[in-house]
Design a protein around this nucleic acid. Structure first.
Lengths: 254, 254
DNA sequence: ATGCGTATTCTATATAGCGGAACAATGAGC
DNA sequence: GCTCATTGTTCCGCTATATAGAATACGCAT
């Protein structure tokens, strides 16, 4: 028998959180008795725990005297996501992409109909694309943006459609074309920008997901067209896609 | 002297949750010592609570041996909100409202006698009202809240009446006035807040209904008074009302 | 080496939380 | 109306439990 020395677990805290979990999982309130049965606790114990959770603001009493979770747990959880540093989670993969491509790597999140760059690694090659951290770009024009757009295309389509501005001769200004491109992007698994925002600057992007499937951001590689040889496009696309899903995997472990 | 007989509070649970809150509020990990100082707990106590939180999956150890909150708290809280996938159903209409008004758009649900913002779209105008996602406001003071309150006014009236706190000189602190306002709101179809929570910040709100008639949440537009010209009030009100009923329609299809 | 700041383990002790039973409040069935 | 069944709440004595504080171990400077 291996004396694993199980870490000691405070039972009160454990039970309290169990109650909270149970409660948040229910659409409507539940009574003390049912709850205690559910969790295999004594009524009095359950009652006291509910009492403390209530005074702490995690639980409230419904008018029908049953107990229900408040949104406090959610509010707390939200700040985790807010503080969740995508940059930290993505940094290894960004380095990897940089090594593999020697091009400029971007990490971007969506902000309305734009994307905002929250991190980047400069290209080591002489000719490089330029975009400052904190800078923005239209969502339908660049690799990262298109990757993000494809994720929520149903929600964003009409909005974007109403604002299709032309930046280069490659820019997609036709909704039908955008529809097709988004469909293709979804199939492909990563997005391609053929110089639609800055002339002769191509880019590739793939989305990063939170554990629940929500879109958290996107990774992208930006490449001057003259740097791009035959077949490079596919290779970089695949790399970005892989990197993004790897970051998503990282987030899953948080 | 009121014999309040303070409800008994399990200290372990309380401390544990305090730690969790503290942790979720931090951008990066924190050590046992700092944390214990922060919360006024013993190091060993803090350590043990961290240990249980870790084995329960709420906390993880960073590579640098510090402690940080995991996404579990978030996932739990999320399920509260997830029970209604309101955000998805409302997003298109929120964008629409944003386009039409250029002001800040809120999606809120009721949480006891407060409302909590579960989504928003920032105003594009320079002066904008500010409320964080996850933030809360009294139900009887703001547009979204008043819309929600009007829906269940019979149930909530007395509770609310007992807690009429004054936030601005426009705040309704008189039950009779509230009665009238709620009646007017029902007739009108949307709620108006004339700067009753934050001075000079007006807001408009309308309720979203589930297919069975239950109230799911509310859409709102928040407007600094100086942005508001003659007739804008009616226009925005009508917009919000239409948007909310459109979202209700969406929910019907889910 | 040495000292200082951590994290972690140990242990004796008090007390916080526990279960069970008693009590109150509800509501259903007749 | 009354009973009976079920739920929510309080009480209380016991002991398992969480606690504080000291002891130990680690890391990292100088």
């Amino acid at each position: 028998m291996s004396k694993d020395s199980e870490p000691r677990v405070d039972s009160t805290l454990s039970k309290g959180l169990a109650i909270l979990e149970e409660l948040t999982g229910m659409k409507s309130g539940i009574g003390v008795s049912d709850l205690s049965r559910e969790l295999g606790l004594t009524k009095s114990n359950t009652f006291r725990l509910l009492q403390t959770l209530t005074t702490l603001g995690y639980v409230r009493r419904e008018p029908d005297r049953s107990y229900a979770a408040t949104l406090k747990a959610w509010q707390i959880g939200r700040s985790v996501v807010e503080n969740l540093n995508l940059r930290a989670a993505a940094s290894q993969m960004m380095l990897y992409l940089s090594e593999e491509t020697k091009e400029t790597i971007y990490l971007a999140v969506r902000d309305g109909l734009n994307i905002v760059y929250i991190d980047k690694i400069e290209s080591t090659k002489p000719i490089r694309s330029w975009n400052p951290i904190g800078g923005a770009a239209p969502i339908y024009c660049v690799g990262t943006g298109k990757a993000l757009l494809a994720e929520d295309y149903r929600l964003l389509r009409d909005q974007v459609a109403a604002n299709l501005q032309q930046y280069t001769d490659r820019t997609i200004t036709d909704v039908e074309a955008l529809d097709k491109d988004m469909a293709a992007t979804k199939l492909r698994g990563y997005a391609i920008d053929t110089g639609e925002f800055r002339p002769n600057v191509l880019s590739f992007g793939a989305a990063i997901h939170l554990p629940n499937g929500e879109t958290a951001g996107a990774l992208g590689v930006s490449v001057p067209d003259i740097n791009l040889g035959e077949g490079d496009s596919d290779r970089i696309g695949a790399l970005v896609q892989h990197a993004a899903s790897s970051v998503s995997e990282n987030l899953r472990r948080l």
